[in-house]
Design a binder for these strands. Structure first.
Lengths: 208, 208
DNA sequence: CCATTTCTGTAGTGATAACTCCAAAAGTCT
DNA sequence: AGACTTTTGGAGTTATCACTACAGAAATGG
C-alpha cells in the first residue's frame, strides 16, 4: 500500500520551487546543474531520479512559475479595467523584492542554440497563450458591449503584450515598481483612441 | 612604412560583421567559438590574434551593431514626429528579412551567469544610453515649446523604451512588420494625453 | 531475519567550452 | 639573399557541461 523502498529524503515540491527560482534568475542555459543541485539541496542522481533531465525539470519549473507567479487577467466589469489591472499587476509582479526581476517566461531563453530549440519553442508557446488570453478578454469586452464591434483585438493584444514583455526588460535594467506602474498608466493613456473609432488618421486598430 | 610580417589573410571588418550576426541571433553565451570561427571563415588562433578574446569580440560586435543596425532618433521638427519615427523605424529594423529578428542589445544577454556579468552590464549600459537619447529628444521638445514644461521626460522615456524593448520580444515570437508597425501606432495613441496636462486622473507624467 | 525496492553520495563518463603551443608560411627591411 | 616579424593551421590543454554506474543506506513485505 505505502510506497516501497527507501523514501525520498527531500520535498520534491520545495526542490522544484528552488530550481524555478534559479531558472528565473539565470535562464535555462545559464542555470548549471551544479547550481541547480546546490540550490535544491540534493545531488545530481536525486535530481535525475525525480525530474528525468534538465529540460523536463525546466518545463515543470515553468508550470510552477505560471501557477505561483504568473500574471493573469483578473475578473473585472469591463475590458478596460481588466487590462489596466493586468498591466499594473505586471508592474508589481516584475518588481517583487527578494524575487528575480521581470518575467521568467519572457527572459529565460531569448536566444536559441541548436540544442535548446525545444525550450525556446515551449516558452514561445506559453507567451502565445498569454497573448491569446488577453485577446480573449478583449473579445469578451466586445461581446459585453463595452468595446466597439469590429475592433482588431489581435492588434490590441499585440500592443499590450509588447508593453508587458518590455516591462520585463525594464525591470531587469533596474526600473523600479513606481517606474513600471507609471509605464502601465502611460500604456493606458491611448485606450479610448485605441478602442473607439476616433483614431489619429482613420481607425488604426479597426482593421489590419 | 607598410605592415611588417605576414599579412592577415582575412578582412577584419568582414569577419567582425559575421561574428556580429552570430551574436545577434544566438546571444553571447549561445554563440560558441566553433560557430564563430566557422562563420568568420578563420581558425581560433586568428580570431584571438585579431580580437583578443570572446568578450572583446562581442564588445566590438556591439559597437558595429550600433553603427550599422542601431535604431536612432532621427531629426524631426517636433518631438512627436521624432518619437513616432523612432517607434516605426524600430518596427522596421526588428523585422528585416534575412536578419535576426529583434534588437541585439536587448536580446543578446537577458540572463546573467557569474562569468558574464561584464557582458550584461555592458549591454545594460547601452540600453541606458539609448533611453537617455530618447529623453534628450523629449527635453529638446520641451525647450522648443512643442512639449509642455514640467513634463516628466524620464517617465515618458521609460514608457517608450518599454515599447521598443517589447517589440524585440514580439519580433522574436514571430510578429511581422505590419504587426509591429501597428504596435508602434498604438503606442502613439496616447501621446496627446501623455504630453499635455489633461490626463486621466490628474497629470500622470507631470511628476513621479 | 532476509529479500526486495528505492533513494543517496561518490566518483567518474564523454562531449564541448574557451583558449593556446608551436612549427611552417608569407610577408617586409636591410 | 637572409634576418626579422607576424599570421596561420593542426593539435592539444584545462575546465566545465549534462548525465550516469555503482555500491551502500533506508525503507517495506514476508
Amino acid at each position: 500500500m505505502a510506497e516501497r523502498g527507501r523514501p525520498r529524503g527531500f520535498d520534491r515540491q520545495v526542490a522544484l520551487r528552488r530550481a524555478m527560482e534559479v531558472f528565473w534568475e539565470h535562464g535555462y542555459e545559464g542555470a548549471s546543474l551544479s547550481e541547480l543541485t546546490a540550490a535544491m539541496g540534493i545531488n545530481a542522481p536525486s535530481l535525475y531520479a525525480a525530474f528525468s533531465c534538465k529540460e523536463a525539470l525546466f518545463r515543470e519549473a515553468v508550470t510552477l512559475y505560471e501557477q505561483q507567479e504568473g500574471v493573469l487577467v483578473a475578473p473585472a466589469p469591463t475590458a478596460r479595467e481588466a487590462v489596466a489591472g493586468l498591466l499594473r499587476s505586471g508592474a508589481i509582479a516584475y518588481t517583487e523584492p527578494d524575487k528575480p526581476a521581470g518575467c521568467m517566461i519572457v527572459l529565460a531563453a531569448t536566444t536559441y542554440t541548436p540544442k535548446t530549440e525545444g525550450i525556446r519553442d515551449h516558452l514561445r508557446e506559453r507567451r502565445r497563450a498569454a497573448k491569446a488570453a488577453v485577446r480573449q478578454r478583449l473579445e469578451q469586452g466586445v461581446a459585453d458591449g463595452d468595446l466597439a464591434p469590429g475592433l482588431d483585438t489581435g492588434a490590441l493584444a499585440d500592443y499590450l503584450s509588447t508593453v508587458l514583455s518590455g516591462m520585463s526588460v525594464q525591470a531587469r535594467d533596474g526600473v523600479g515598481r513606481d517606474g513600471l506602474l507609471a509605464v502601465a498608466d502611460a500604456a493606458m493613456a491611448g485606450w479610448d483612441r485605441l478602442t473607439s473609432g476616433e483614431a489619429g488618421r482613420s481607425e488604426p486598430l479597426a482593421s489590419r
